[in-house]
Amino acid sequence: MTGADALEVVVRAVAVLAAFLVLPLLVGQTEHKVMAHMQGRLGPMYAGGFHGWAQLVADGVKFVQKEDITPAAADKGVFRFAPAVALVPYLVAMAVIPLSPDVVAADAPAGAVFVLAVTAVGILGTLMAGWASANKYSLLGAMRAAAQLLSYELPMVLAVASVCLAAGTLSLTGIAHAWSPWWLLWQLPGAVVFLVSAVAELQRPPFDMPVADSEIVFGAYTEYTGLRFAFFLLSEYAGIVVMSLLFTVLYLGGWQGPLSDQLGWLWTVLKGFCIAVVVIWLRVAWPRLREDQLQRLAWLVLVPLALAQLALTGVWVVLTA
C-alpha cells in the first residue's frame, strides 16, 4: 500500500464520518420543521438565528453536559457498550452506499447483503440496552423490539432479494446501473414492502411499539442519559439516512436523472431526502400500531407480498433471459 493509497483511505473514511455526523442532523432538523408545520406550528426558531437551524447542535451540547448515569442494578459493561453497538453499524453501512458511480466510500461487491447484515447487528444494541438496564420498561421495550425486528427482517430481505434478482447482481452500484423507470411499476410491491419494513426496523412511528412513550416510558432507552442517549437518537436518524439512501439506490435508480454524469450524487441525495421526508410524514400522520396489528401486518401482509414480488421477478427474469 503506497502513501497515496493510504491517504485516499483516510480521506474516504473522514468523508463518511462527516456525512454520518451531518446528514442525520439534517434529517433531524427537517423532522423538527416538517413535523411542526404539519401540526400548524413553527418548530425551533431561535437557536442559530435563522429559523433555528442550530437547534440540534444546541441539543448535542446539552446532551454532552448532562450527567452520565449508570443505574446501580444495571449490568454495567453491557449497559455502557450498547450505544456503540447501536451506532457503529449504521456508520459502516453508510460507507458502502453509492451516491454516484464515483462517489462511494467502499464499493463492496455484495453491497446489498452487506447493508442488510450490518443493520441487523445494530438491533443488538437495543436488545443489550434493554436487558442491561435492569428496568422492567426497558426489558419490555427490548422484547417488543426483538419481536418486531425478527418479523420485519424477513420481508425486507425478501424485497431486497427481488431487486437483486431483477438486476442480476448484489452490488449496489450494479443495481442502480441496471435500474430503468419500468422498475417503478414492476417493483412497486417490493418497494412498498421495503419502505414499510425499513420504518418498522428503525422503530419509527407508526411502528414505535418498542419505545411507546405513553406505555413503557421510552422502552430500551429509558435509563439512558446524556451522550449515550444522544448516541441512540443519532443512530435512529442515521438509520433513516441509510434506509432512505438504500431505498433510493434500490428502487429509484440512485443517480439516474438529467445530467447524471455531473450531478449524479445530487440526484441520489435529493431522492433520498424525499424518502426521508416521507418517513417523517408517516410519523406525523399515523397513530401507533398495536403489537398484534404489527405482527399481523408483517406476517399476513408483508411476507406474502414480498414472496409474490419475488416470484414475479423470478418468473420475469427467467422469461426474458
Partner: peptide, 18 residues
Amino acid sequence: ILKGLATTARTLARPTHT
C-alpha cells in the same frame, strides 16, 4: 390512512398558528 396523510399535507401548506 390516506386521510391522515392528506390532512397533514394540507396543514403543511397552510400558515401556522404559532
